[in-house]
Simulated scan of single mutants.
Amino acid sequence: MAMISFSQNGSTPFQQLLGHNKGILERWTSLEESIYSSGTFLSGLKEEVRRTLAFHNGCEYCKAKGAPSQNIMDSRTQTAVYLAELSGKTTHISDEEFNALKEVFTDSEISELLALICFITACQRFGALLSLGPVCQI
């Protein structure tokens, strides 16, 4: 059970927790739509990043949607997942790690990928801090 009540605003349990602040919910949802509607990365890459981060961020709601894949064949997805894992361990990316990123992604893609990772982390930390569980009655 979540630590606070669900509001009437929003269509998911996460949104209904954030929905106590309608203006924030609207802007948060707009940013989410912008990030997820971008065609820069395939949806499978975004989902693997989300799954990886769920286990680093401790969000039970997000972890219940599935564990990260064990056999990722696509090098871009592998690199994105590595970056997601790294972001859960440190706030610094070494020159060597950045050079490896630049072999796979453009500067624009790195910027967007880090924005995706940070946004997902914020969502998942919010859910974890409020004990948003995998099965929530709203």
Rank of each mutant, 00 (worst) to 15 (best):
G66M: 01
S75N: 14
G58W: 00
Q78D: 10
K63L: 04
E60A: 15
Y61S: 00
C62P: 08
T79S: 06
I72W: 13
A67I: 12
H56Y: 09
N71R: 15
V81R: 02
H56S: 05
E60N: 10
Q78H: 15
C62D: 01
Q70K: 10
D74G: 12
P68E: 07
H56E: 08
R76P: 09
F55T: 04
Q70S: 12
Y61Q: 01
A84T: 09
K65W: 01
R76V: 05
Q70Y: 02
C59N: 09
E60L: 14
D74M: 00
G66A: 03
C62Y: 00
K63E: 14
A64Q: 10
A64T: 07
P68D: 01
G66V: 01
K63I: 12
K65I: 06
M73I: 15
V81Y: 04
C59K: 00
R76G: 08
K63S: 04
N57Q: 10
M73Y: 05
L83Y: 13
C59S: 06
V81K: 13
M73P: 07
Y82I: 03
H56T: 01
A84G: 00
R76K: 13
S69D: 15
K63P: 14
E85Y: 02
E85Q: 07
A54G: 07
T79L: 08
N71A: 13
C62A: 08
T77C: 07
C59M: 03
S75A: 11
Q78A: 02
N71K: 15
A67E: 11
N71C: 10
H56C: 05
P68V: 03
T79E: 01
E60K: 15
S75D: 10
N57D: 09
N57R: 09
E60I: 09
G58L: 08
G66E: 11
Y82Q: 12
F55G: 14
A67G: 14
L83E: 00
Q78M: 07
N57A: 04
E85M: 09
C62T: 01
A67H: 05
Y82G: 02
L83R: 05
G58I: 08
E85C: 12
A54T: 13
L83T: 08
S69Y: 14
Y82W: 10
V81E: 06
S69K: 15
A64N: 05
P68A: 03
L83V: 05
L83A: 13
K63Q: 11
A80E: 03
N57T: 01
E60V: 15
A84P: 13
K63V: 03
T79I: 14
A84M: 05
H56G: 00
Y82S: 12
A84R: 13
R76M: 04
F55H: 04
Q78N: 09
G58E: 04
Y82A: 12
C59T: 09
S69M: 09
N71H: 07
N57K: 06
T79M: 11
F55I: 08
T79Q: 03
E85H: 15
E85R: 05
N57S: 10
M73Q: 13
Y61F: 12
E85V: 00
K63Y: 00
A80T: 07
V81M: 13
A64I: 00
T77S: 14
A54H: 11
A67Y: 08
D74Q: 06
D74S: 06
A54D: 02
K65C: 02
M73N: 15
